[in-house]
Design a protein around this nucleic acid. Structure first.
Length: 586
DNA sequence: AAACACGGCGCG
DNA sequence: AAAGCGCGCCGTGTTT
């Protein structure tokens, strides 16, 4: 019989793929018996405690329970210098918490234990007093650290004893939980692989942006006749609304002060064209791009590889997130409304000897919307492989669309596509009409026709909002319960679609990872998930069998039988960097 | 010095 | 009556 024990590691920092190392761990059994095991202080205890560590992870006699297992397992693997995650059964109380209370303000160990059992949180401040840069706990006096570790081990087992029965209660939730634990392992291998920075390109981009940023600043100061810091909204405010006496067309949400954001500048550009508007926009874009690119240089390992921290439960919708750095929002070029983009994706490249494939679900949000609302016309279009956004464009733009050139039609279709989502996610007809550039009366007439043509799609938002209002949550097709913020019931649709897409991608990652592990011995591997996309790396040596492997991956990614509409993926190949991708047809 | 709020901006 | 959503990161400005 396996023995459940909580397991918590202490490290010299968070950069486990860099300098940081584990120096201690603690355990606690369900009876409340704790052990504190230092691996740094004296040689005898180090040998003894390492033996105990190996007993936990190498004998199959224990089921370690962790709060954020990805971190503890990564630290432990580094210490033992071998992979262990695939060979053990484990639990994660952080994931349990996310699954049971997606809307909870905090899933931190200390917060949860305080709320559940009133365990005081002041041990953190007692220890933090000895921590200089905020993450190296090895310098804290041992007796104080002992007390701290004891408490964390107790908290973790407590949380498990409280949460896990609730997870097991619901068969579907338990299935999701198992998928989440599998994803922890999948994600560990991605972070370990990491992503290669094109370091010289990155530096070149930074140099280039430094000059362009300086130029923009010079022009701004010349035009305004005084020193300006465009990073201060107060300066921009003075410049636009006092010095140049432009009208205030937009205000900020929380404090209702005059907005100086890109949309406000674009609005002013229409009514009060002025070179200062361009230069401010340039400065902001180049400045941001520059600092972000600079931050990448500080995050590379000795091989120019970046190991990001991927949070498998980063969002209240079940989505993942990524930090240090966030590789899910790297700027790309060719985006409408961004006139001065920074080609930041040039800074990422396949490792030497590899190519990258970017595989993304095509139109997954729309497909899921159609599945959930069951709009007959749209279900039919998707099953025939047709264009679901065309009818919307025809309705919203009327003759303007019918008489437009092919190129113009494409633009209008893109606008209609955004409108489809905006409407489904709760935007008002008036607001959507405005962004489409329609006269208010025309907009109302067109939307009337839109509602009559797609009654079920149009009604989905209201139906889900009322469901959320009534029971406080909505459920995805996989059985994940998503509580929806009170007094914002209209976000229910977004939660449902975003949450379902997240679950699809999570399952896809596990399937693909397992397949690649078995079929290519891990030579091919996933690097990163980006909400509806995975990026994989592929050795050039193996390119002979690439079409076969990609076909298998595609089959795994679209194999979800529960939907009324088919799923599909598109593939792009990057051979040099992430900016220059080419469509790849199987 | 650290923590927090805000405006702003990139992605899906 | 009116409402797109979810993240992480940056710089500024205020509070502790």
């Amino acid at each position: 019989m396996k023995k459940v024990i909580s397991y918590d590691t202490e490290t010299t920092g968070f950069a486990l793929h860099g300098e940081s190392k584990m120096f201690s761990f603690s355990t606690c059994d369900p009876g409340g018996n704790t052990k504190i095991c230092r691996l740094d202080k004296c040689k005898v205890s180090k040998i003894k405690n390492t033996k105990y560590l190996k007993k936990i992870f190498e004998t199959s006699r224990f089921i370690p329970v962790m709060h954020n297992a990805k971190f503890d397992l990564t630290a432990t693997e580094k210490y033992l210098q071998k992979h262990i995650a695939e060979d053990i059964v484990f639990h994660d109380t952080s994931i349990q918490s996310h699954l049971l209370m997606n809307d909870h303000p905090s899933h931190r160990l200390k917060e949860l234990a305080y709320e559940l059992a009133g365990i005081k949180r002041d041990d953190e401040t007692l220890v933090k007093a000895f921590v200089k840069d905020g993450s190296d706990y090895s310098k804290v006096p041992v007796d104080r650290m002992d007390a701290y570790q004891k408490l964390d081990a107790e908290r973790t087992i407590l949380l498990h004893l409280f949460f896990y029965p609730k997870i097991k209660e619901d068969k579907k939730v338990n299935e999701i939980y198992k998928e989440e634990l599998e994803l922890v392992k999948t994600t560990m291998r991605m972070e370990e692989r990491g992503i290669m920075l094109h370091r010289n390109r990155c530096k070149k981009l930074i140099d280039d942006l430094t000059t362009k940023r300086e130029n923009a600043l010079e022009k701004i100061e010349h035009l305004s006749g005084r020193r300006i810091n465009p990073d201060k909204t107060s300066h921009i405010e003075w410049l636009l609304f006092e010095k140049f006496e432009m009208p205030i067309l937009k205000r900020t949400k929380k404090t209702s002060s005059p907005s100086t954001d890109k949309e406000a500048l674009n609005l002013l550009r229409e009514t009060n064209p002025h070179p200062i508007l361009e230069e401010i926009t340039k400065f902001k874009s180049f400045s941001r791009g520059r600092t972000i690119l600079k931050s990448y240089l500080g995050l590379v390992d000795e091989n120019d590889v970046i190991h990001p921290d991927i949070n498998t439960n980063g969002a209240s919708t079940g989505r993942e997130s990524c930090k240090n750095p966030n590789l899910q929002n790297v700027e790309k070029t060719g985006v409408l409304l961004n006139r001065y983009p920074v080609p930041a994706r040039q800074a990422f490249r396949p490792r030497p000897g590899y190519v990258n494939f970017h595989i993304d679900y095509s139109g997954i949000e729309m497909r899921l919307l159609v599945h959930y609302c069951q709009e007959p016309l749209l279900v039919k279009i998707l099953n025939k492989g047709g264009d679901v956004h065309r009818p919307g464009a025809e309705i919203l733009f009327g003759d303007e669309f019918k008489n437009a050139s092919k190129k113009k039609q494409k633009t209008l279709r893109g606008a209609a596509k955004n409108a489809n989502f905006a409407i489904a996610y709760g935007a008002s007809a008036l607001k959507v009409g405005k962004t489409l550039g329609l006269d208010a009366n025309v907009a109302l007439r067109r939307f009337d026709l839109y509602y009559r043509t797609f009654p079920k799609l149009s009604f989905l938002g209201r139906a889900l909002a009322s469901e959320a209002k009534q029971q406080g949550y909505i459920k995805t097709i996989f059985g994940r319960c998503l509580r929806v913020p009170e007094n914002k019931n209209y976000v229910a649709t977004n939660y449902l679609i975003q949450g379902t897409a997240a679950e699809i991608l999570k399952r896809a990652q596990n399937r693909v990872h397992k397949y690649l592990q078995q079929a290519t011995s891990g030579e091919v591997g996933i690097l990163l998930p980006i909400h509806d996309e995975i990026i994989i790396e592929y050795p050039r040596k193996r390119l002979k069998d690439v079409d076969h492997v990609l076909k298998e991956i595609k089959a795994l990614m679209v194999a979800f039988e529960m939907f009324l509409v088919p799923l599909d993926v598109e593939i792009e190949i990057a051979t040099y960097d992430w900016e220059h991708k080419k469509r790849y047809t199987l």
